[in-house]
Design a protein around this nucleic acid. Structure first.
Lengths: 190, 190
DNA sequence: CAAATAAACTAACAACCGTTAGTTTTGTAA
DNA sequence: TTACAAAACTAACGGTTGTTAGTTTATTTG
């Protein structure tokens, strides 16, 4: 087990604070205080506040896009691909409960990198949309509005970070199964 | 049709900016500039920046809680109650696309009123949870994890504000129907 | 031990923040 | 036209922001 570098500690601490109050409301002095050092000392490890946000968000966004590409290019059924997307989100949210907040709520404060972030997000959503539309065409999925399907599933998955920390006892595999059941099979008892 | 007071214009303009960048990143000078006046002039109409946030969030939160109370206390089936909750969210999100962002993302910046906000939110969620649990007991709903059901539906509904502005052509009733179909019946073609 | 490097510190900066005080302009009613 | 109120303005305040410069302390390496 590699010990965390000081830079990694700073980023993790910052992400925790960003989740609580958002990027703009967290000051460099807040981050420093949480690490029991002075704000100026942070600059021995990072180049700017903006730099911290970039590290928090971009690595996560790339992980989602890479995971989606692998799933999209596999030769499984579309239903199974959706199952795998759910697992991807649960897994990443479990490992990065703080960063997920910034990914969802603070991406617009990425100054130089906001374009790259939006490219990653669009690519991700396009692949998901194609899986859903293909699933409807093959008859695997009901002929509902594909945008409503995409949006409903994606909203639930993107908000997992708000919910996972409350349930320390639930394990990721079980949560993935429960989510698949609800999101794919619905909740009505037929 | 009543013409909007200056205070209402300020709140609406502020909410629009809050949606784009979040409460903390929007300055009084930003709000004033969007209205083509000077920041100091805002104070002829509102008492503080905090006051604006309170007006944006609390009225909406009360509308949700009141709507939920009406639905909860009705004598319809639990499935029908869930349908009505979906319609409630679509209706409010349609009429308040900007304020919804602050309700979701900026409530923690309510200084004096954060406790009241959390009471409203907890009350809302508790009623929703009871409807779901009751639906499972009566056999209307499948015996899935009630927290997963609650969380999945609530996440989709709370994120409607991100999605509605893109779809000017969809009408609220149709969107409610599509959402009910997806969230209640699921997406698999049985 | 000596030298070099990493990582903390103090002090300060220019810019920006929410807000106030006091004044001027604008619109309306008598 | 005069009088009044509403709503804008200018100027400035004390505090906070991200960041830099220069220095000291702690740790690692030869």
């Amino acid at each position: 087990m590699k010990t965390a570098t000081r830079k990694e500690q700073i980023i993790k601490t910052a992400a925790k604070l960003f989740k609580e109050k958002g990027y703009a409301a967290v000051t460099m002095r807040d981050i420093a205080k949480a690490l029991d050092i002075k704000a100026a000392s942070l600059y021995n490890h990072i180049t700017s506040k903006q730099d911290i946000l970039k590290y928090v968000i971009i690595s996560l966004a790339e992980e989602f896009t890479n995971g989606m590409n692998t799933i999209y290019n596999s030769s499984e059924s579309n239903i199974h691909k959706i199952d795998q997307i759910i697992s991807l989100h649960v897994d990443i949210a479990y490992r990065n409960p703080y960063q997920m907040a910034s990914l969802n709520n603070d991406w617009m404060h990425l100054e130089k990198d906001v374009t790259y972030y939006l490219e990653l997000r669009d690519s991700y959503e396009d692949n998901f949309r194609k899986i859903i539309k293909n699933g409807i065409e093959t008859g695997e999925l009901t002929d509902a509005n594909p945008e409503v399907i995409l949006f409903s599933i994606l909203s639930a998955l993107r908000n997992l970070y708000l919910w996972i920390p409350k349930k320390e006892d639930v394990n990721p595999a079980e949560l993935s199964n429960n989510l698949s059941q609800v999101l794919i099979n619905g909740i009505i008892n037929k």
